[in-house]
Design a protein around this nucleic acid. Sequence first.
DNA 1: CCTGAATATTTCAGGATGTCAAGTAACCGG
DNA 2: CCGGTTACTTGACATCCTGAAATATTCAGG
Lengths: 145, 145
Amino acid sequence: MSTPSKPRRPDALTMEVVELIGDVVARFYADYEEAAGEHALTGPQARLLSLLSLEPLPMRKLAQKLKCEPSNVTGIVDRLESRGLVERRPDPADRRVKVAAATDEGCRVARDLREGLHFAREPLAGLSEDERRSLRDLLSRMLAD
Amino acid sequence: MSTPSKPRRPDALTMEVVELIGDVVARFYADYEEAAGEHALTGPQARLLSLLSLEPLPMRKLAQKLKCEPSNVTGIVDRLESRGLVERRPDPADRRVKVAAATDEGCRVARDLREGLHFAREPLAGLSEDERRSLRDLLSRMLAD
DNA sequence: CCTGAATATTTCAGGATGTCAAGTAACCGG
DNA sequence: CCGGTTACTTGACATCCTGAAATATTCAGG
């Protein structure tokens, strides 16, 4: 069989692409940390705040989205709350639940943060519209499993 | 001034691609952490070990590649060394320098780790060779600036 | 209604990562 | 030999993260 379903040893081209994706990931992460740092935020704080800038979420949901333990979320929200970027609200439907929500200030910082993300936006400008469409389709198919 | 140098609002397509790249980054990172965890390694430990599996490096160079302070590298190498995956060697040319090198065991673990990286390899298998080549070229151009 | 299991959050202990400042050892140019 | 620089380590401290235990609340059954 010329095309095995599970190639143990991937071909050179695949390895090259994996390598490139690794580089993109490193660049993206570094850029994200830097953008966060400009607002005196850590990476995890910035990620949590970005989530909350879309919609308020209970602590449990936050932990699921961030793929970490709920006890960890407590601390991160604590620090953001002490800076007035996030607040805890009671859930009227379930008094066990605390809903974390970004304050106005938090939303503003989250927006600045998004706009401060230069990587992926700048180099993308060097691609034609057709190429960007093509890249979008390829990435979409990679993520759709 | 009210008009910053680049208030450019990127188009919808570009934002979509940025979003997708963010998803890819999240998936890649999660996969990497998981693969590292299977060898009882943390992410930073796995990254450092991977670097050393290519070639031995002095502590200073490691800090540069990992984009962190040298004092931080000390601790990570300490933990890897205490597990026999890495060793410190003196540099005959400069006695201030300590060269960190992966042991045989360390190289073996690094190889296992590379092969345990399922993401980016599996979904890539769903792309044709032409598509993978196209993806490679697009990513290359993104990184080349 | 009461009781016990399950759920949401927090707290605590402990390890890992990261920064920064200070200390030690070694190099190097005069 | 001396003074400045470089490489690494150490120590103090903040953050992130997990896992176990504590608290409060919900919910299902009897």
